[in-house]
Protein backbone atom coordinates (compact mmCIF):
# COMPACT_ATOMS: atom_id res chain seq x y z
CA UNK A 1 0.00 0.00 0.00
CA UNK A 2 1.43 3.32 -1.09
CA UNK A 3 0.09 6.81 -0.56
CA UNK A 4 -1.56 8.57 -3.47
CA UNK A 5 -0.03 11.70 -4.97
CA UNK A 6 0.39 14.74 -2.73
CA UNK A 7 2.58 17.81 -2.50
CA UNK A 8 5.26 18.13 0.16
CA UNK A 9 6.74 21.22 1.77
CA UNK A 10 9.19 21.40 4.65
CA UNK A 11 9.19 25.08 5.70
CA UNK A 12 11.68 26.37 8.25
CA UNK A 13 9.47 29.05 9.77
CA UNK A 14 6.12 28.83 11.49
CA UNK A 15 4.79 31.74 9.41
CA UNK A 16 5.57 29.91 6.17
CA UNK A 17 3.92 26.72 7.48
CA UNK A 18 0.79 28.58 8.54
CA UNK A 19 0.46 30.33 5.20
CA UNK A 20 0.86 26.99 3.37
CA UNK A 21 -2.01 25.60 5.47
CA UNK A 22 -4.09 28.73 4.91
CA UNK A 23 -3.57 28.45 1.16
CA UNK A 24 -4.81 24.87 0.77
CA UNK A 25 -7.95 23.54 2.49
CA UNK A 26 -6.80 19.93 1.96
CA UNK A 27 -3.29 20.42 3.35
CA UNK A 28 -2.31 18.51 6.49
CA UNK A 29 0.41 18.97 9.08
CA UNK A 30 3.03 16.20 9.21
CA UNK A 31 4.96 15.82 12.48
CA UNK A 32 5.89 12.24 13.45
CA UNK A 33 3.53 10.70 10.92
CA UNK A 34 2.85 7.54 12.91
CA UNK A 35 -0.91 7.83 12.45
CA UNK A 36 -1.09 9.98 9.33
CA UNK A 37 1.27 7.88 7.18
CA UNK A 38 -0.50 4.55 7.82
CA UNK A 39 -3.78 6.32 7.03
CA UNK A 40 -2.23 7.62 3.79
CA UNK A 41 -0.78 4.20 2.96
CA UNK A 42 -4.33 2.83 3.31
CA UNK A 43 -5.55 5.83 1.28
CA UNK A 44 -7.92 6.61 4.12
CA UNK A 45 -6.27 10.03 4.26
CA UNK A 46 -5.57 11.87 1.00
CA UNK A 47 -4.12 15.29 1.79
CA UNK A 48 -3.26 17.40 -1.24
CA UNK A 49 -0.25 18.83 0.58
CA UNK A 50 1.83 17.72 3.55
CA UNK A 51 3.39 20.51 5.59
CA UNK A 52 6.32 18.84 7.37
CA UNK A 53 7.00 20.90 10.51
CA UNK A 54 10.15 19.08 11.68
CA UNK A 55 12.57 21.72 10.42
CA UNK A 56 10.81 24.68 12.03
CA UNK A 57 12.90 26.38 14.70
CA UNK A 58 11.54 26.41 18.23
CA UNK A 59 9.30 23.33 18.02
CA UNK A 60 11.58 21.02 19.99
CA UNK A 61 12.16 20.36 23.64
CA UNK A 62 10.40 19.89 26.95
CA UNK A 63 10.42 22.58 29.66
CA UNK A 64 9.33 21.79 33.21
CA UNK A 65 7.95 24.98 34.72
CA UNK A 66 6.62 25.71 38.19
CA UNK A 67 3.04 24.76 37.30
CA UNK A 68 3.15 22.87 34.02
CA UNK A 69 5.30 20.82 31.67
CA UNK A 70 5.53 22.48 28.26
CA UNK A 71 5.84 19.97 25.43
CA UNK A 72 6.73 21.46 22.05
CA UNK A 73 5.17 20.18 18.84
CA UNK A 74 8.05 17.96 17.68
CA UNK A 75 8.63 16.17 21.03
CA UNK A 76 8.41 12.42 20.46
CA UNK A 77 6.48 10.12 22.80
CA UNK A 78 9.66 8.35 23.86
CA UNK A 79 11.35 11.66 24.85
CA UNK A 80 8.36 12.53 27.02
CA UNK A 81 8.40 9.04 28.55
CA UNK A 82 12.09 8.99 29.47
CA UNK A 83 12.69 12.61 30.52
CA UNK A 84 13.98 12.51 34.10
CA UNK A 85 12.58 15.92 35.03
CA UNK A 86 9.16 14.95 33.70
CA UNK A 87 9.27 11.73 35.75
CA UNK A 88 9.93 13.77 38.89
CA UNK A 89 7.42 16.51 38.15
CA UNK A 90 4.59 14.25 37.08
CA UNK A 91 5.14 10.49 37.51
CA UNK A 92 1.71 9.76 36.02
CA UNK A 93 3.12 10.55 32.58
CA UNK A 94 5.64 7.69 32.46
CA UNK A 95 2.92 5.29 33.61
CA UNK A 96 0.65 6.40 30.77
CA UNK A 97 3.40 6.33 28.11
CA UNK A 98 4.05 2.60 28.66
CA UNK A 99 0.72 1.97 26.98
CA UNK A 100 1.28 4.04 23.85
CA UNK A 101 1.98 1.64 20.94
CA UNK A 102 5.52 0.18 20.85
CA UNK A 103 8.97 1.70 21.31
CA UNK A 104 9.74 2.17 17.58
CA UNK A 105 6.40 4.00 17.16
CA UNK A 106 7.03 6.08 20.30
CA UNK A 107 10.45 7.00 18.92
CA UNK A 108 8.79 8.75 15.96
CA UNK A 109 5.26 9.71 16.99
CA UNK A 110 4.77 13.07 18.68
CA UNK A 111 2.77 13.93 21.78
CA UNK A 112 1.18 16.99 20.21
CA UNK A 113 0.42 15.11 16.97
CA UNK A 114 -1.47 12.56 19.02
CA UNK A 115 -3.44 15.33 20.75
CA UNK A 116 -4.32 16.91 17.38
CA UNK A 117 -5.39 13.55 15.94
CA UNK A 118 -7.79 13.28 18.90
CA UNK A 119 -8.55 9.58 18.75
CA UNK A 120 -11.06 9.05 21.59
CA UNK A 121 -9.35 5.77 22.55
CA UNK A 122 -5.85 7.22 22.68
CA UNK A 123 -3.87 7.93 25.83
CA UNK A 124 -2.48 11.42 25.14
CA UNK A 125 -5.87 13.16 24.89
CA UNK A 126 -6.93 11.40 28.09
CA UNK A 127 -3.79 12.57 29.87
CA UNK A 128 -4.36 16.20 28.88
CA UNK A 129 -8.05 16.02 29.85
CA UNK A 130 -7.30 14.31 33.18
CA UNK A 131 -4.70 16.88 34.19
CA UNK A 132 -6.77 19.81 32.94
CA UNK A 133 -4.05 20.88 30.55
CA UNK A 134 -4.19 23.00 27.43
CA UNK A 135 -2.64 23.51 24.02
CA UNK A 136 -1.36 26.63 22.31
CA UNK A 137 -2.43 27.03 18.68
CA UNK A 138 -0.79 29.54 16.38
CA UNK A 139 -2.56 30.87 13.31
CA UNK A 140 -2.34 33.81 10.90
CA UNK A 141 -3.71 36.24 13.50
CA UNK A 142 -1.62 35.12 16.46
CA UNK A 143 -1.76 32.44 19.09
CA UNK A 144 -4.41 31.26 21.53
CA UNK A 145 -4.47 28.83 24.41
CA UNK A 146 -7.23 26.21 24.29
CA UNK A 147 -8.17 24.21 27.40
CA UNK A 148 -8.38 20.43 26.99
CA UNK A 149 -12.12 20.36 27.61
CA UNK A 150 -12.67 22.84 24.76
CA UNK A 151 -10.01 21.34 22.49
CA UNK A 152 -11.39 17.80 22.14
CA UNK A 153 -14.71 18.14 20.35
CA UNK A 154 -15.55 14.76 18.86
CA UNK A 155 -14.03 11.79 17.00
CA UNK A 156 -10.78 13.03 15.42
CA UNK A 157 -12.10 16.57 15.76
CA UNK A 158 -10.52 19.39 17.73
CA UNK A 159 -11.00 23.13 18.11
CA UNK A 160 -7.88 23.73 16.03
CA UNK A 161 -8.67 25.78 12.93
CA UNK A 162 -7.37 24.51 9.61
CA UNK A 163 -4.80 27.29 9.38
CA UNK A 164 -3.52 26.83 12.92
CA UNK A 165 -0.60 24.76 14.14
CA UNK A 166 -0.54 23.52 17.71
CA UNK A 167 2.93 24.61 18.78
CA UNK A 168 2.89 23.25 22.32
CA UNK A 169 0.87 21.39 24.94
CA UNK A 170 0.85 22.22 28.64
CA UNK A 171 0.53 19.33 31.08
CA UNK A 172 0.02 20.57 34.66
CA UNK A 173 2.25 19.15 37.41
CA UNK A 174 0.73 16.90 40.06
CA UNK A 175 -0.23 18.68 43.29
CA UNK A 176 2.25 18.01 46.14
CA UNK A 177 1.72 14.58 47.66
CA UNK A 178 -0.90 13.56 45.11
CA UNK A 179 -1.28 9.91 44.18
CA UNK A 180 -1.70 8.89 40.55
CA UNK A 181 -2.70 5.86 38.50
CA UNK A 182 -3.42 4.87 34.92
CA UNK A 183 -4.32 1.54 33.34
CA UNK A 184 -6.33 0.30 30.42
CA UNK A 185 -8.14 -2.75 29.12
CA UNK A 186 -6.87 -3.62 25.68
CA UNK A 187 -6.88 -6.58 23.31
CA UNK A 188 -3.07 -6.51 22.99
CA UNK A 189 -0.53 -4.48 24.93
CA UNK A 190 0.29 -1.38 22.88
CA UNK A 191 -2.99 -1.42 20.99
CA UNK A 192 -5.62 1.27 21.34
CA UNK A 193 -7.49 1.06 24.64
CA UNK A 194 -10.92 -0.55 24.81
CA UNK A 195 -11.25 1.54 27.98
CA UNK A 196 -8.54 3.44 29.84
CA UNK A 197 -8.86 5.23 33.17
CA UNK A 198 -6.55 7.70 34.89
CA UNK A 199 -6.89 9.03 38.41
CA UNK A 200 -5.17 11.71 40.49
CA UNK A 201 -6.07 12.40 44.10
CA UNK A 202 -4.71 13.65 47.40
CA UNK A 203 -5.47 12.40 50.90
CA UNK A 204 -6.13 14.70 53.84
CA UNK A 205 -4.69 13.53 57.16
CA UNK A 206 -8.23 12.69 58.24
CA UNK A 207 -8.09 9.99 55.56
CA UNK A 208 -10.51 11.85 53.33
CA UNK A 209 -9.80 12.32 49.62
CA UNK A 210 -9.42 15.77 48.10
CA UNK A 211 -8.75 17.02 44.59
CA UNK A 212 -10.00 13.82 42.99
CA UNK A 213 -9.70 13.76 39.21
CA UNK A 214 -10.82 10.79 37.11
CA UNK A 215 -10.92 10.60 33.32
CA UNK A 216 -11.52 7.81 30.82
CA UNK A 217 -10.75 7.12 27.17
CA UNK A 218 -12.48 4.68 24.84
CA UNK A 219 -15.94 5.31 26.21
CA UNK A 220 -17.25 8.20 24.12
CA UNK A 221 -16.37 10.45 21.16
CA UNK A 222 -13.64 12.19 23.19
CA UNK A 223 -11.76 11.73 26.47
CA UNK A 224 -14.20 12.24 29.34
CA UNK A 225 -13.65 13.72 32.80
CA UNK A 226 -15.92 11.76 35.16
CA UNK A 227 -16.94 14.79 37.20
CA UNK A 228 -19.90 13.15 38.94
CA UNK A 229 -17.61 10.42 40.26
CA UNK A 230 -15.09 13.07 41.37
CA UNK A 231 -17.78 14.96 43.28
CA UNK A 232 -19.00 11.77 44.96
CA UNK A 233 -15.49 10.73 46.05
CA UNK A 234 -14.21 14.11 47.25
CA UNK A 235 -14.37 14.27 51.04
CA UNK A 236 -14.94 10.53 51.48
CA UNK A 237 -12.57 7.84 52.80
CA UNK A 238 -12.92 6.04 49.44
CA UNK A 239 -14.78 3.14 51.04
CA UNK A 240 -16.55 0.40 49.07
CA UNK A 241 -19.92 2.19 49.14
CA UNK A 242 -18.31 5.44 47.94
CA UNK A 243 -16.71 3.58 45.05
CA UNK A 244 -19.97 1.82 44.21
CA UNK A 245 -21.68 5.21 44.01
CA UNK A 246 -18.86 6.71 41.90
CA UNK A 247 -18.96 3.80 39.45
CA UNK A 248 -22.76 3.89 39.22
CA UNK A 249 -22.66 7.60 38.42
CA UNK A 250 -20.04 7.05 35.68
CA UNK A 251 -21.68 4.34 33.59
CA UNK A 252 -23.91 6.82 31.76
CA UNK A 253 -20.76 8.43 30.35
CA UNK A 254 -20.18 5.34 28.21
CA UNK A 255 -21.82 6.32 24.92
CA UNK A 256 -19.73 4.24 22.51
CA UNK A 257 -22.13 1.74 20.92
CA UNK A 258 -21.38 -1.97 20.50
CA UNK A 259 -18.61 -2.54 17.98
CA UNK A 260 -16.79 -5.50 16.44
CA UNK A 261 -14.50 -5.83 19.47
CA UNK A 262 -16.72 -5.29 22.48
CA UNK A 263 -20.26 -4.41 23.48
CA UNK A 264 -21.26 -1.24 25.27
CA UNK A 265 -22.08 -3.23 28.40
CA UNK A 266 -18.57 -4.70 28.36
CA UNK A 267 -17.13 -1.20 28.20
CA UNK A 268 -19.28 -0.20 31.18
CA UNK A 269 -18.03 -3.17 33.20
CA UNK A 270 -14.43 -2.46 32.23
CA UNK A 271 -14.88 1.21 33.16
CA UNK A 272 -16.24 0.29 36.60
CA UNK A 273 -13.42 -2.15 37.27
CA UNK A 274 -10.77 0.34 36.19
CA UNK A 275 -12.24 3.18 38.28
CA UNK A 276 -12.12 1.00 41.40
CA UNK A 277 -8.56 -0.14 40.69
CA UNK A 278 -7.20 3.27 39.73
CA UNK A 279 -8.73 5.07 42.72
CA UNK A 280 -7.25 2.42 45.02
CA UNK A 281 -3.83 2.60 43.36
CA UNK A 282 -3.77 6.40 43.43
CA UNK A 283 -4.80 6.42 47.10
CA UNK A 284 -2.01 3.97 47.92
CA UNK A 285 0.52 6.28 46.30
CA UNK A 286 -0.82 9.49 47.83
CA UNK A 287 1.05 11.00 50.73
CA UNK A 288 -1.11 12.39 53.47
CA UNK A 289 -1.28 16.18 53.26
CA UNK A 290 -2.36 18.62 55.92
Amino acid sequence: MKPSIFGYEAPTTLEAAISLLAGDPDAMVLAGGQTLLPAMNFRAANPSLLVDIQHIQGLRGIAVGSDAIIVKAMVRHREFELDEEVKRANPLIAEVMQHVAHIPIRNRGTVVGSLCHADPSAEMPLLLALLGGSVVAQGPSGSREIAAEKFFQSFLTTARNHDEIVVEARFPLLPAGAGWAFDEVTRRHGDYAVVGVGCVLALHRSGRATGVRIAACGIADRPIRLKDAETILNGTTLGPLDLDAAVAASLVAVTQPDDTNVSQSYRRRALGTLIRRMVARAAQRAETVA
Binding site: M1, Y8, G33, Q34, L37, P38, N41, F42, L50, R78, H102, I103, P104, I105, N107, R108
Partner: peptide
Protein backbone atom coordinates in the same frame (compact mmCIF):
# COMPACT_ATOMS: atom_id res chain seq x y z
CA UNK B 1 1.16 0.36 8.04
CA UNK B 2 3.44 0.09 11.04
CA UNK B 3 2.11 -3.09 12.61
CA UNK B 4 4.56 -5.86 11.68
CA UNK B 5 7.90 -4.17 12.39
CA UNK B 6 9.79 -5.92 9.52
CA UNK B 7 10.93 -2.59 8.07
CA UNK B 8 12.40 -1.26 11.33
CA UNK B 9 15.68 0.61 10.79
CA UNK B 10 17.68 2.98 12.98
CA UNK B 11 16.70 6.58 12.31
CA UNK B 12 19.28 8.87 13.92
CA UNK B 13 20.17 5.91 16.14
CA UNK B 14 16.64 5.05 17.23
CA UNK B 15 14.48 2.21 15.92
CA UNK B 16 11.70 3.48 13.67
CA UNK B 17 9.41 2.19 10.95
CA UNK B 18 10.81 2.92 7.49
CA UNK B 19 7.32 2.32 6.02
CA UNK B 20 5.92 5.13 8.20
CA UNK B 21 8.58 7.60 7.15
CA UNK B 22 8.77 9.35 3.80
Amino acid sequence: HGVCGCCTVLIDGKPGRSCLTL
